[in-house]
């Protein structure tokens, strides 16, 4: 415990700004991953435990594409679309076989997928740590906010994920397709009876959820070291986020992701060893007081 360090950081604006930017990028990345998880759970009712692996694959796709083309735009698209496609295939050939089975079966299938993806990445990319490096386009001087400096890429990352989040929310709440997806979450037989191909829709939703994990991976690639096991920790954290925010709620996921981001960024200074403990304590507290999460709809009891 080092609460003096935390207090002194908060009192200087330079340190506070740096930590806030760290909190925001952790939070926004988590939001990308968790909103995908939440979307899949909200509509399909399954928990995609392989979501962390998708995040990792997205980062590696972006890395490979960037090595080949030196273009961040291509790397971003490769990560996003590549993982979206993998998500659709995974849903069609594997996940759809365990719908309606107990959660243990889904857990096991996803566990198998995690093991396989981790090993494939190890075989194809090698087990050593990889660094993508900052793309050329973002080799700008850091921006100054109130005495603290924030890399330009961080600002881009935060704005990009915010834009994607808003786009996703608008798509679900305001479009016709979004309406159909919401109906699918509540009453699939009725949607099917109205002549809509629910099988395709399920695959599509799973694909979009995976796409979000891929985007998170691609966005994270320039700022993180890439390792075959990188998906696990973000998986656990995005569970915390979905539980706190409420399963199936995009806005809830955003609030909870920022909460976790700030806990991580400032906890790293004040109480580095107990950050995990605090996150799980918050999750337990939410489950005890309001099991459906801050903004979850259905009652869980």
């Amino acid at each position: 415990m080092n609460l003096e360090a935390l207090a002194s950081c908060l009192s200087t604006s330079a340190c506070a700004v740096t930590q806030v930017s760290t909190a925001l990028i952790i939070g926004m990345l988590l939001f990308m991953v968790a909103s995908g998880l939440s979307l899949i759970f909200g509509v399909l009712g399954v928990i995609n435990f392989a979501h962390g692996a998708f995040y990792m694959v997205g980062a590696y796709f972006a890395y490979a594409a960037y090595q080949a083309t030196e273009s961040f735009a291509v790397a971003f698209l490769a990560g996003a679309l590549g993982v979206g496609l993998i998500g659709i295939l995974f849903e069609r050939f594997i996940m759809s076989r365990v719908y309606g089975k107990d959660v243990l079966m889904q857990l096991l299938v996803c566990y198998a997928a995690i093991l396989i993806f981790d090993d494939l990445v190890k075989i194809i990319a090698g087990p050593e740590y990889k660094m993508m490096g900052m793309p050329e386009a973002f080799a700008l001087p850091p921006l100054e906010f109130g005495g603290g400096f924030v890399p330009a890429y961080y600002v881009f990352m935060i704005l990009a994920s915010l834009a994607i989040g808003i786009g996703l929310w608008l798509a679900i709440e305001k479009t016709r397709l979004g309406k159909i997806v919401r109906a699918l979450a509540i009453n699939p037989p009725m949607v099917s009876a109205l002549g809509i191909n629910t099988t395709m829709l399920y695959a599509g939703v799973f694909g979009v959820g995976s796409l979000l994990a891929g985007i998170a991976g691609a966005l994270a690639a320039p700022t993180r070291t890439l390792t075959p096991g990188m998906g696990l920790s973000i998986l656990i954290e995005s569970f915390i986020v979905t539980v706190i925010g409420g399963m199936g709620s995009i806005v809830g996921a955003l609030i909870a992701a920022l909460l976790i981001g700030f806990t991580r960024a400032f906890g790293a200074i004040g109480f580095p060893l107990f950050v995990d403990g605090l996150m799980f304590a918050m999750m337990a507290l939410v489950l005890i007081l309001k099991p459906s999460g801050l903004l979850g709809r259905e009652p869980a009891r």
Binding site: M283, A284, I288
Partner: peptide, 27 residues
Amino acid sequence: ICVRLKEIYFSFITLAFQMFIHSIILT
């Protein structure tokens, strides 16, 4: 605390308590 919750929520809260204990051990 845990057994009052159902299904996946029970799973998550048991996970939360376990990780809480794990971080107490670490800390």
